[in-house]
Design a protein around this nucleic acid. Structure first.
Length: 300
DNA sequence: AACCTTCCCTGATGGC
DNA sequence: TGCCATCAGGGAAGGT
């Protein structure tokens, strides 16, 4: 599932390929992912040049001359660059350890919903098996784009990510800390995998109430979030199921995860068995020894 | 208002 | 070409 590190990896991969290039045409398979009807989408985007690639949280912002393409990959969205001079992989292969699907650059298939065609024969393909992703086309300096982005919370690695801002956004909410981490209005870009990893890194049990966390816990979380995200970027993202980068290749951060997907396996820090529970309808992984349900009470 | 649950969607998996 | 239930989950929408 593409979270901040995956989207950032895609952004960096696409950038040298598409900045400065002109979109000649758009081929839409399933208009379901577009937030505009096909006709106006195509008419508006045609002949526009890509000027810049930005990212906000999990959203990729492809800036054009007058509009901005906002790509949200949802669960299984893939955005890849296709160069006909490179060879397409003949078919899907199995990942050796996870046994799951893996895709290289390949020709459009039934899950390829949008093709952005460039003048030199290259293209950018949007593929999304479960169709939870969305593509918006918004005016570059209109109120819609501003409204769209203002719903998002603190941006890790930016100036907005300060201890003061963090404390303010944290508030005194009574929901479970895992749920707060998944709220994009709190810190943008954290999803299920990195939420679990950040909580492990900070030594906080995922079911603890946010408002009951001590300042020292909040401080640890404040530091843990960018730490796990940065590691994710370093390893090119986490490929557990469908995530691939702009070249259609997998990341390797799945090998670096401490708790996510490791239920039943020993904690790499203390050797206790990693547990899996469900919080906010999301699979949640933690170490029962490193992440205690409540802070240890001091005896009087 | 704040929090929780349901729903959208498809492919992999396992039981029978 | 076996059939069916279950699971994965980001985030909008609906419910309490």
């Amino acid at each position: 599932m593409p979270e901040l590190p995956e989207v950032e990896t895609i952004r960096r991969g696409l950038e040298p390929h598409i900045v400065g290039i002109r979109i000649e045409d758009v081929v839409v398979g399933d208009p379901h992912v577009l937030q505009l009807d096909v006709g106006s989408f195509a008419a508006r985007i045609r002949r526009q040049q890509v000027t810049r690639l930005r990212r906000r949280g999990k959203k990729l912002l492809i800036e054009l001359e007058t509009d901005c393409l906002v790509v949200h990959l949802g669960m299984t969205g893939q955005l890849t660059f296709r160069d006909p001079r490179r060879e397409d992989a003949a078919r899907f292969v199995r990942h050796e350890t996870t046994g799951l699907q893996r895709a290289h650059q390949h020709a459009p298939d039934k899950h390829t919903h949008v093709q952005f065609l460039f003048g030199d024969g290259t293209s950018m393909l949007y593929r999304d098996i479960r169709k939870f992703g969305k593509i918006y086309l918004l005016s570059k300096d209109g109120p819609e784009l501003t409204a769209h982005l203002s719903r998002l919370g603190l941006e890790p690695f930016s100036d907005s990510y300060s201890w003061d801002g963090f404390r303010k956004r944290f508030g005194n909410r009574g929901l479970r800390i895992k749920s707060l981490l998944l709220d994009q209005g709190f810190v943008a870009g954290v999803g299920n995998i990195y939420a679990d990893e950040a909580l492990f890194e900070a030594g906080i049990h995922p079911e603890r109430r946010a408002d009951k966390l001590r300042p020292v816990d909040r401080r640890r979380l404040f530091r843990a979030i960018p730490a796990v995200l940065e590691r994710g970027i370093q390893f090119g993202g986490t490929s557990l199921r469908d995530y691939v980068n702009s070249e259609g290749e997998q990341g390797s951060n799945q090998e670096e995860l401490m708790v996510y997907g490791r239920a039943g396996e020993p904690c790499l820090r203390c050797n206790a068995t990693i547990l899996r529970i469900v919080v906010s309808q999301r699979g949640t992984h933690y170490c029962p020894r490193c992440q205690r349900p409540a802070p240890r009470k001091r005896k009087k």
